[in-house]
Design a protein around this nucleic acid. Sequence first.
DNA 1: TGCTGGCACTCCCGTCGGACGAGTGCCAAG
DNA 2: CTTGGCACTCGTCCGACGGGAGTGCCAGCA
Lengths: 340, 340
Amino acid sequence: MSEDRRLAVLRAIVEDYVATHEPVGSRSLVERHSLGVSPATIRNDMAALEDEGLIAQPHTSAGRVPTDQGYRVFVDRLSQVKPMSAAERKAITSFLDGAVDLDDVMARSVRLLAQLTRQVALVQYPSLTRSTVRHIELVSLTPTRVLLILIADTGRVEQRVVETGSSLDDDLLGRLRSRLLERVVGQRLVDVAERVGDLAEGFGRDEVPAVRAVVATLLETVVERHEERVMLAGTANLTSYGEDWGGSVRPVLEALEEQMVLLRLLGESRTTDSLTVRIGHENAVESFSSTSVVTVGYARGDEVVAQLGVVGPTRMDYPSTMGSVRAVARYLGRILTENP
Amino acid sequence: MSEDRRLAVLRAIVEDYVATHEPVGSRSLVERHSLGVSPATIRNDMAALEDEGLIAQPHTSAGRVPTDQGYRVFVDRLSQVKPMSAAERKAITSFLDGAVDLDDVMARSVRLLAQLTRQVALVQYPSLTRSTVRHIELVSLTPTRVLLILIADTGRVEQRVVETGSSLDDDLLGRLRSRLLERVVGQRLVDVAERVGDLAEGFGRDEVPAVRAVVATLLETVVERHEERVMLAGTANLTSYGEDWGGSVRPVLEALEEQMVLLRLLGESRTTDSLTVRIGHENAVESFSSTSVVTVGYARGDEVVAQLGVVGPTRMDYPSTMGSVRAVARYLGRILTENP
DNA sequence: TGCTGGCACTCCCGTCGGACGAGTGCCAAG
DNA sequence: CTTGGCACTCGTCCGACGGGAGTGCCAGCA
């Protein structure tokens, strides 16, 4: 009973099960794949695979279904990422090239990914903390209110209203603006905090509170993870996987409405730009125990700025999904890199 | 056979059906409601109501179910909006009061509405075209790129990158900014177009193309319906209504991902601030033929700036839903009005 | 004229039993 | 180590059946 054939059987089981969504038996296995042995032999292999915990049977004397561990082995050792066809690549570029600004790029990417994979797609905005400051603008709204606008080099724009407490005249606003600009433009957002800590120095006594308020809001904007936005698309695809996906669709839909959950799904492997596959219970989030999450980082230049990925049933077509995810990440990275 | 009693029967049928989700028969009707007559009498009334097209039976000799028209009559003549309890009102205010900016207000409103109604909630951003310009800012990104930021008095901020073609120096940018400000600040967005048409006059020959580019983008931002954003929450609630909702959940989920569809659902009665209920086929959108949409405008000051509402099964609890929708609209309006 | 009780009828739905078939595990032989 | 054979297990798919809920109609009564 060769190790090789056993793995070939596992691969065949995964492929068939993904294709048919039905437990697969020894007979149909030898029919659909040229394994060169009889059903009985396969049955022995299957028994072994079951002992190893890679497959399981839903009921006695039904076909076999891959377990989470089975998928794990399949992904790690038995499959390779399926590259996109030329036509698909072309479709991707032409679809993404029409974008006019960052929001548009993100929106298009996430919809594209949902379409390609027929699953739920997630795209995280380029992280604020990893990018640098391109510009800061202060706009006076009312005497005691200032709109603080922060523009990152990724094209991302954050805005925030500051209650200054005391009033700011145009002169003070101008001085504050230029001080801020000279301190932080070109700096990485992570470093902004230490660059502006003493910014209040050099301002008049009565001006300090207002300056402090602005700086505080700026730091909030920069530091807060909370603002790591994630876009979502393709929730309708949840319905296609019938009822047989563990529990039901509801908890998944609920979880997908929580930004925090999305970030956890995407964020746990922040720095890599290699494909990450989290299968079933490997997901930290409870309600995703019968789903798999495929993520990858995308880069601007040669720095990974955020993650994107898809959420689907554990019985997804991993090679294709991984191919699509990787392809979208690459083209998205290219667009971000080319458009300064 | 009095008209009054027939309508009382219709009301009872709607109420029971909404509560139980099962066809309601003459016997259980007289048990649960004090109609003062026998089942046989009710049956006669039911036959009449069926002739009028207000109720129907799923199968011969099953109970009756309200038709779209039946709900229509119920909403128009037999029900009144159920006001929120004091506790609920308090919860609403405390939930909304924590908001820090417009995005936050919108996000909280939509989630709140979804929770209150246990349905899918929609909230449209305050319309750009109905509000006035508070400020316009031009920020130079690269020599040939300018970030145009438009701030409306509703607190809404739109940003857009302008490719100017030729290069803009700081001087030109400054002149352009002040010209723009003097022309449009305080103007209604609808009027912006005519105020800036001739803005290029007074600029040098070589400056005109860049000015034109900025103006064009500004108009695009102002005019484009496309940018009427809608927030969405509570899609998980779609699953609770079981399978028995016409067709399935999928087309509804799909439609809800289209901004255009959301706008159509909300937008058809733009100007009123009175409750609008669209039942089943009354919805223009195909996939919503077994859902009802309850919308209402919300105002800033005394001007309706946008719509909000919920999408649910036709067999929803209309009085409560209408109460929740109206309440959220009022509190949202109050917040927008109080925070300038 | 309108309400009521009675009655026959329709049809949905849950249950039960049996036949079928897919699939398994084991064994003895090649 | 592989293979064919064989007995066995279950899940699933009918078809029949009975109960029950609900209806429509009718004749009698206020």
